[in-house]
Amino acid sequence: MKIGIDVSIIESNIAGIGHYVVGLIEGLVKVDRENNYVLITNNAENLKALKLRKNFEIIELKSKKVNFFWILKAGRYLRKQKIELLISPANFIFGVIFPNTIQIVYDLAPIKYPNFFSRIGALKYKLQLNWAVRNVKSIATISETVKRELLDNYKSLDNKVHKIGMGMNKVLLEPRDDDSSIEVKNKYNLPDKFLLSLGTLEPRKNYVNMIKGFGKFVKNNSDFKYVIVGKKGWFYKEIFKTVKDLNLTKNVIFTGYALEEEINHLYDLASGFVYLSLYEGFGMPNIEAYSRGLPVLTSGIPVFRETMRDNAVFANPIDIDSIASGMEKLISFGKVRIDKSFLGGYSWEKVAEKLVALY
């Protein structure tokens, strides 16, 4: 079968869904030598790190931006080249113009929490998802929680929605390298003791409440700092205002975007990981931190209960006392014993096998 994959989400500063698509392709390279894959991008330079087999081909439809017109152009290419199936990891419009599509859905955040997004952004997401789910061949989700949410919102999709899961970034499986960790520590001027959070600065990540919780925690633990790693997203000004209002400017460190190869060192340097999102479709940073032996404090929301099981401390993400108490528990643990069988469930090969089964 000749299968297209829209990989335009893979950008130079890779993040979020881009990581997922890279991992998925790596899994497909390992498990599928029978089908032929065409990776469609607007910038082939962003794919130079991929290691592909002969049954994978990169097609560049050059464009500075991935917009509606680029997607239409890609759709025409798909039909002209007689692509039999498309895997769409991000752009819902593909599901409308090319119905024989497997659409990957990561979460329903703009639908469940529209106030976390611009009005236009939330409406656009909802409309495009509505169009796509009614047209596509299949829908793949990264968690059972998102699958249930889709079925709750779209009653007619019962046989269309399938969980394929998520895999771990291979960088996180590399052994500890103290020399490289020291370089990262010096680069960001990190303290000896700190709690770590990682993710784009946006409302659903719940940084405001985490900072407030840290404000209570630090009163009895003045030797700890709070390090937040992530680029600015949207509606982030309140985060910085909260730090200033609570007089925590010397206690909270914002590093900005960190390189992919630095993430494991940041986990290795930290004393604990704090990830108290109000909503997620999966929450891979929790598992990444755990894989490095780091104790994890996370929200007691359904998807984190699903993905972390009993391998984390759970807190109420809107209760400041619960957050502060969770941080206290976190620093009492030290490094955690890693359950390798638990981590074995998060393999890109397994994700790829489940996806191939949908063809």
Results as ranks from 00 to 15, higher is better:
I142A: 10
N169W: 01
V133W: 07
V136F: 14
I142H: 06
N130E: 00
L129W: 10
D158I: 02
N159A: 06
R134K: 15
H162R: 09
I139A: 09
L157R: 04
V161I: 13
L151R: 12
E144G: 05
A140Y: 07
E144W: 07
N135Y: 13
K155C: 10
M168Y: 00
S156R: 12
Q128D: 05
V146C: 08
N159L: 01
A140Q: 00
V136Y: 14
I139F: 14
I142G: 02
E149Q: 15
V161D: 11
D152L: 15
W131F: 15
H162W: 11
V136W: 14
R148G: 10
L150R: 02
K147R: 12
W131H: 03
K147E: 09
L157M: 08
S156N: 13
S138K: 15
K155L: 15
S156K: 13
V146W: 04
Q128A: 15
N159V: 03
K147S: 11
A140T: 05
K155V: 14
V136Q: 15
V161W: 13
W131E: 04
R148V: 11
K160Y: 13
K137Q: 10
E149M: 13
K163E: 12
T145F: 14
H162S: 11
L150K: 03
T141M: 13
I164L: 11
N169F: 02
N135E: 12
A132K: 02
E149A: 11
I139T: 07
V133M: 11
L151K: 09
L157S: 01
G165E: 06
M168N: 02
K137F: 06
K137T: 03
G167I: 00
I142C: 10
N159M: 06
M168Q: 08
M168E: 05
D158G: 01
I139D: 04
M166S: 03
K155S: 15
K163Q: 10
E144I: 01
G167M: 05
L157P: 03
S138R: 15
N169A: 00
L151P: 05
M168G: 07
R148F: 07
M166A: 09
K163P: 00
A132I: 04
V161K: 08
